[in-house]
Amino acid sequence: MTDGPARRVTSADVARIAGVSRATVSYVLNDTPRQTISGATRARVLDAAATLGYAPSAAARTLRTGRSDVVLCLLPDWPIGQEVGSLLTHLSTEFAAAGLTFVVHPGTPADRPGGDLWKAITPAAVLAFTGFSDAGIAALRAAGVALVVALLGPGPRPHRELQATQERIGRLQAAHLADAGHLRIGYAYPDDARVRIFAEPRLDGVRAGCAERALPEPEVHTVAVDAEAAAVAVRAWRSAGVTAVCAYNDEVALAVLAGMRDTGLDAPAGLALVGVDDLPAARLAAPALTTVTTDQRAVAAHLAATVVAAVRGGERPVLDAAAVVRLVRRAST
């Protein structure tokens, strides 16, 4: 036997227990200014609400104020590793401090379109990591929902909030290797299509870094997280005269290290190597992996401030990519 849904506790229930009007309950729980409510009455209302487990209805609040407090994050079909997880955690903290509720929807190819999701939730804003169609943007605008596109792709204006950060990662990798005297650089591209949105601007940054130093284009090979497959790429780089490799991230870099061991090479003598993300495994690798790390707390603060500006008005902040991305130098270079 299963019970039906329990009846929702309402403000009328709180008012009855506290012996006050529903208006008084609303004033107390919403901390409404310019109301002369005694401390004793306020305490009775708060005690009654706590005893009953009363939670104000978000839908009712939206109807009353004309504005939701929800920020809907449409997360693409990405592997949620350390860096994405850290970003989401810090975003949740930042939005809570701003009085907003952060809701994340991880996407998969089988999911219904993002447009259906925001219509069901009626958020104050959508934080997206890929672009919306022109029709989707128009529908959001008509509904009064702010849209912030945080990585790549068009939004209402082409801000591309994190594009520069991803390119900066690749530039740092290439600059570090070039400054160490490497004249032929390779790039270890991931074999996971889901992360192409990160891999392409990082590779663009490596290309730009090579071009700035009049070096040839990087020698690009796709590298699976598999020692045998990585060994094939290692041999190809060596045949092409490559002496150093920029890897898409630390996982791919660790695969390259495994491929080097399979071919009898060590880093940095056989190939110098730079990863991205500063995973704990990168610090424990043999040799310890030089990598590029991003201050996800600062990125989250920037994105949250951008969303708040879009929802409440105000100037959109500018993210200083050079301030949030830095190289961590270790033994692999």
Rank of each mutant, 00 (worst) to 15 (best):
V9D: 07
V9W: 12
V9S: 03
T10I: 08
A12D: 08
A12P: 00
D13R: 02
V14N: 00
V14M: 08
V14R: 00
A15K: 04
A15S: 08
R16V: 04
R16Q: 08
I17H: 04
I17M: 12
A18W: 04
G19H: 00
V20Y: 05
V20Q: 03
S21V: 06
R22W: 02
R22C: 03
A23L: 13
S26D: 13
S26I: 07
Y27V: 00
Y27A: 11
Y27I: 10
V28S: 07
L29P: 03
L29D: 03
D31M: 09
D31G: 13
D31H: 15
T32Y: 07
R34M: 06
R34D: 15
R34Q: 14
Q35G: 09
Q35D: 14
I37N: 14
I37A: 10
I37P: 12
S38F: 01
G39L: 08
G39M: 08
T41Q: 09
T41P: 04
R44T: 09
R44E: 06
A48V: 05
A48P: 02
T51C: 09
L52R: 03
L52W: 08
G53L: 14
G53H: 06
G53Y: 12
Y54H: 15
Y54I: 07
A55I: 15
P56D: 06
P56F: 05
P56H: 08
P56I: 06
S57M: 11
S57Q: 13
S57E: 08
S57C: 01
A59Q: 11
A59I: 07
A60W: 01
A60T: 05
A60Q: 07
R61Y: 11
T62V: 10
L63P: 01
L63I: 11
L63V: 10
R64I: 06
T65Q: 07
G66N: 01
G66D: 12
R67H: 12
S68I: 08
D69H: 06
D69E: 12
V70Q: 06
V71L: 10
V71A: 01
C73L: 11
C73V: 13
L74D: 05
L74C: 13
L75P: 00
D77R: 10
W78M: 13
W78E: 06
Q82A: 13
Q82I: 03
E83D: 10
E83C: 02
V84Q: 07
G85C: 03
L87V: 15
T89Q: 12
T89C: 12
T89K: 14
H90C: 11
L91V: 12
L91I: 06
T93Y: 11
F95K: 07
A96I: 00
A96L: 14
A96S: 15
A98R: 15
L100N: 04
L100Y: 04
F102Q: 02
F102V: 05
F102A: 02
V104F: 04
V104K: 13
H105T: 07
H105E: 13
